[in-house]
């Protein structure tokens, strides 16, 4: 097994890539289609040019459920002290916002994943989840009853 050497100098980049390719082919038997990299580069560039940059739209989509989640958390703090530990709320909210910002979750793909989850339930301790669910279901039943009336 021959080890390739890293070299970030662009002059030696081709040498490095060639060495990398040979090592993978020779040691591991991994092959690639002919002209793969030049074709793949074009596909990637085409996909990127198709990417619409819609920061305002994306942010709006993201802000609505986040605002709803924050409102829900605040409502739960006020009306359901058993379901949500009061002291943890600001930290949880800031951590969540921070993670979403730093881990690049602000895009359309992850938005739908977030939507699928009952966000409020994520902030409840495991041992209090039963109380939380009961409160939540009860509230839904009352809401449904009042709507049907």
């Amino acid at each position: 097994m021959k080890k390739p050497r890293t070299n970030n100098n662009s002059e030696n980049q081709l040498k490095f890539d060639k060495s990398l390719r040979l090592t993978h082919q020779k040691d591991l038997g991994l092959e690639i289609p002919k002209d793969y990299f030049s074709n793949s580069k074009q596909v990637i560039l085409d996909k990127i040019s198709d990417t619409k940059v819609r920061p305002l739209f994306s942010r709006r989509i993201f802000l609505i459920p986040m605002a709803a989640a924050v409102a829900l958390i605040l409502a739960l703090v006020v009306f359901k002290p058993n379901a949500l530990p009061l002291n943890n709320v600001p930290l949880i909210v800031s951590d969540t916002l921070n993670q979403i910002n730093t881990k690049g979750l602000v895009n359309n793909n992850t938005y739908f994943e977030v939507e699928d989850v009952s966000i409020a339930a994520l902030f409840v301790d495991d041992d209090k989840i039963d109380d939380f669910v009961n409160d939540y279901v009860l509230e839904d039943v009352i809401k449904d009853a009042s709507v049907s009336n």
Binding site: R21, S40, K41
Partner: peptide, 15 residues
């Protein structure tokens, strides 16, 4: 960036 990283990342991902 593509020229520099495409092949390196390809092998990284392939494994």
């Amino acid at each position: 960036l593509l020229n520099l990283y495409q092949e390196r990342l390809y092998w990284h991902i392939r494994k």
